[in-house]
Design a protein around this nucleic acid. Structure first.
Length: 815
DNA sequence: CAGTGAGCGAGCTTCCGCTTGACTT
């Protein structure tokens, strides 16, 4: 019988700690929470002080059973989950589920995983802090109430299977509001003036300086007038100011800052960063990757100091401890850093190496001396012009310090392309300059940038919404619900004018540039916009950007023992629930989010757009009229909010019957996967370059015949003895199809010469794959729908349940 | 890949935070 059982949250942590503690200690992991509110029902008893009903989820049963067994075999159980609200609750649930007592259990905490920290923790045990636990229960139950009361309102008023929650709904709101700012933005033009001057020093050496005007002009006339004035003006240096400036390194990484920098410097998505970081953590190469703390352990401070002195010298070392400033931080862990700072690089694939390199550099740089820069500002006056002057800036790095290793990136780096400033030639006050050229270029003010995944995380953290463990999952949830999409937009070509002044002559040039290109930005869908507007109108408190911060304050009061958790919930629920009831009872004249655009000039029937079962649709006519309404999906790039009646009427020009071929109609339409020609049982995608609005019979016939040819060529060979095996011609050349799986044919083998035996051999050498059951069309439809509704994980686990639901749906559909 | 679209049915969907593997729909 072992003496001690220590339970931590993460298995990697358990492994490390196990090494520090001797034979008398067994260290196991709870794998996070082991108990939660029951999954299906709301599981809160409103009649009895919000009494929750907890259950051990199925995927935690085996963990719990093992812990139970080990606990029974131990003299003492040490509950060593993290020291924050969630961690305290994990310990409490363990205490309850494992049937522990104050005599056979102790609660311990540590912030860094070192032998001394853990031994010290064991010397100073305490009991479970029930106030902190209650704060967690309040948080959990409030989130359940919000999610499970609000989502059904959306099912009734907007569309089934939608969701709402304290975090996700506000997240969508940020993106919707930013999109509106972008749409409503009216770019303004202005003229920016910049010049190149020449000056000669005492020895007659010529050099050049670039300088910007301190003023922008609103119109081309003003810009031109200014250049006119410069033609014969005298330019001289009116002042030279030198100022030493210091630059300080950024603090070590938290989850949020790591996600942002990995996106900017490595182009990683938020989830990719977390995936790679998780692997580095499991290999013991970095500390825990879900943290909001910038704190470094004494060990990390000491070893980075050693490392810096050893590789760069004493003057580069400057130890610092940073303070966490982000809202709602709980600081149960250290900052993200390499576990051993003397390991400068890691092995593995390039993603691995690059992320490790980033973390190593950021950590070490944070412990390095600040950089010293001499900054020079030169004012160049224009004689007889007291309002305008040119400014030239120069910078010399006197001591590079941390910049030797690492420089933080910022989101607008790409915008400030003229950011580089270099060395200025020697000059003195009063010196007269000659202009070489002066240019006034037309520029446009830019709309605020759409959010990227990383900049959204930054904003969420700033508002104190969400936690390090939820940033990545939240972004994928709102994508799965199809509230937002990640999209890239190509830039548009834009013409602008530049006036040049050279040799006393002004010329005008028209130039083209690409503007407005955006890479993988977050854009709301129609569903996202409609849901957001609905929630913002009827539940403004929940949708308030400060809602989380406000309730967090109350949770803190519970944790401090100043307030009762049930009365906080009572206050909230007594206000919130009636709002849910009254909103549910509203009989809307139109469907939520519906826009009436006017009347169809041909039939006189009403034209409207709204959210349909499969997304946004346009409709002519009303359901209650005798004649059935006509429907058409909106095109990609069209939105309920901005579409015009003309555009809607255009949609109904399809489907278009363009003629008869072989006594069957040829119909052109646009479906979910783009434009297609429909003839008999054949559907043919219309290739790019053709316009479905004016494709003619000749072109359509060609497409039909070409498709037939492909179909004909598709079958190279089949065998009477084995109807399930075929040799086919596909997009990538010939292949073998067998029981729903495909197998390659080596280039040396002529497909026509294949025998059944040869095919079997090829299948065997490539490893026969398990038979795939070919589903019917309808079933597959339902399966994808079900998969969309579930998260990837859930659908994997509940495969059988999903199938059952799908079958039911399919059955319902037939009736 | 699949080319859909309003009510007499049946019963489903949903939250946030803590943690990792095990899947073939």
């Amino acid at each position: 019988m072992q003496k001690n059982l220590v339970i931590v949250e993460s298995p990697a942590k358990a492994k490390t700690i196990g090494k520090f503690l001797g034979e008398d200690y067994k260290v196991l992991s709870s794998y996070g929470h082991i108990r939660d509110l029951k999954k299906k029902s709301i599981s809160i008893d409103y009649e009895h002080d919000f009494q929750p009903t907890y259950e051990v989820p199925t995927d935690k049963r085996s963990v719990v059973n093992e812990l139970k067994k080990e606990a029974k075999d131990s003299d003492m159980v040490w509950l060593a989950s993290d020291e924050d609200r969630e961690g305290e609750a994990i310990s409490w649930h363990l205490y309850e589920v494992l049937g522990l007592t104050p005599e056979n259990s102790k609660r311990i905490v540590f912030h860094e995983i070192t032998k001394s920290a853990i031994l010290n923790a064991i010397q100073h045990p305490r009991q479970i802090d029930i106030n902190l636990v209650n704060a967690q229960q309040a948080r959990r139950i409030l989130d359940r109430i919000v999610g499970f009361e609000l989502s059904p309102v959306l099912w009734r008023k907007v569309k089934p299977s939608l969701s709402a929650g304290r975090v996700q709904s506000v997240c969508v709101r940020l993106i919707v509001e930013r999109e509106r700012e972008v749409i409503n933005f009216k770019p303004q033009t202005f003229y920016r003036v910049y010049a190149t001057f020449t000056l000669s020093d005492l020895k007659g050496q010529q050099s050049e300086i670039k300088a910007d005007l301190n003023h922008r002009f609103d119109t081309p006339d003003e810009a031109q007038a200014f250049l006119e004035e410069c033609k014969n003006a005298k330019f001289y240096i009116s002042s030279i100011t030198k100022k030493p400036v210091k630059r300080y390194p950024a603090p070590p990484f938290t989850t949020s800052t790591l996600q942002q920098e990995a996106a900017r410097k490595l182009g990683f998505s938020v989830s990719k960063t977390m995936l790679v970081a998780q692997q580095l953590y499991e290999l013991g190469q970095i500390t825990y990757m879900r943290t909001d703390s910038v704190n470094l352990s004494q060990f990390a401070l000491d070893s980075s100091k050693d490392e810096i002195i050893k590789t760069m010298g004493e003057k580069y070392s400057h130890s610092r401890q940073y303070n966490t400033t982000s809202k709602g931080a709980q600081e149960a862990h250290e900052a993200i850093r390499p576990t051993n700072l003397n390991v400068h690089e890691t092995t593995g694939d390039s993603d691995f190496r690059r992320l490790y390199d980033l973390i190593w550099k950021r950590t070490v740089a944070s412990q390095m001396t600040e950089a010293s820069v001499d900054r020079t500002i030169v004012n160049i006056n224009i004689e007889n012009d007291r309002e305008n002057h040119f400014i030239a800036a120069g910078e010399v790095i006197v001591f590079d310090g941390f910049l030797r290793l690492y420089k933080e990136s910022f989101d607008d780096d790409a915008v400030d392309q003229e950011d580089e400033v270099g060395l200025l030639p020697p000059m003195e006050k009063g010196q007269v300059l000659q202009y070489k050229k002066i240019q006034a270029a037309e520029r446009y003010t830019q709309h605020p940038p759409r959010y990227s995944e990383a900049s959204l995380v930054h904003k969420l953290e700033e508002l104190g919404i969400g936690r390090p463990s939820t940033y990545a999952p939240t972004i994928s949830t709102i994508q799965q619900r199809q509230y937002i999409e990640k999209e890239s937009r190509e830039g548009k070509e834009n013409e602008f004018s530049i006036f040049h002044l050279t040799n006393g002559e002004i010329t005008k040039e028209l130039k083209k540039e690409m503007v407005g290109a955006e890479k993988l930005k977050l854009i709301p869908t129609d569903v996202g916009i409609v849901v957001n507007d609905f929630l913002t109108q009827y539940f403004p408190d929940i949708m308030d950007y400060n809602f989380t911060a406000t309730v967090e304050k109350e949770f803190d009061e519970i944790a401090e023992g100043d307030k009762k958790w049930t009365s906080i919930l009572q206050d909230f629920y007594s206000k919130f629930h009636p709002e849910v009831v009254s909103t549910t009872e509203i009989k809307f004249e139109h469907k939520v989010g519906e826009r009436i655009l006017g009347k169809d000039p041909v039939s006189g029937r009403q034209v409207s757009v709204k959210i349909g079962r499969f997304g946004p649709i346009a409709q002519i006519g009303k359901a209650e009229e005798d004649e059935k309404p006509k429907f058409s999906s909106l095109r990609k790039n069209q939105s309920i909010e901005t579409i015009t009646i003309e555009e809607v009427l255009e949609l109904f020009k399809l489907p278009r019957t363009i003629g008869i071929f072989e006594s069957l109609p040829v119909v052109v339409n646009i479906g979910r996967f783009g434009p297609y020609v429909h003839h008999g049982s054949l559907f043919i995608s219309i290739p790019k370059g053709y316009d479905p609005m004016d494709i003619d019979m000749e072109q359509a016939q060609a497409l039909i015949l070409a498709k037939r040819e492909v179909e004909r060529k598709k079958y190279i060979k089949s065998f009477d003895d084995e109807p399930e095996l075929q040799v086919l011609n596909g997009r990538y050349g010939p292949y073998i199809s067998y029981k729903g799986n495909n197998y390659k044919i080596p280039a040396t083998q002529k497909p026509e010469d294949l025998t059944l035996e040869l095919c079997y051999e090829l299948i065997k050498t490539q490893g026969e794959k398990p038979e795939k059951v070919r589903k019917t069309q309808k079933k597959r439809d339902k399966a994808t729908e079900a998969a969309k509704a579930h998260t990837v994980r859930k659908s994997a686990k509940n495969g059988a349940a999903a199938k059952k639901a799908a079958a039911k749906k399919a059955a319902a559909k037939k009736l």
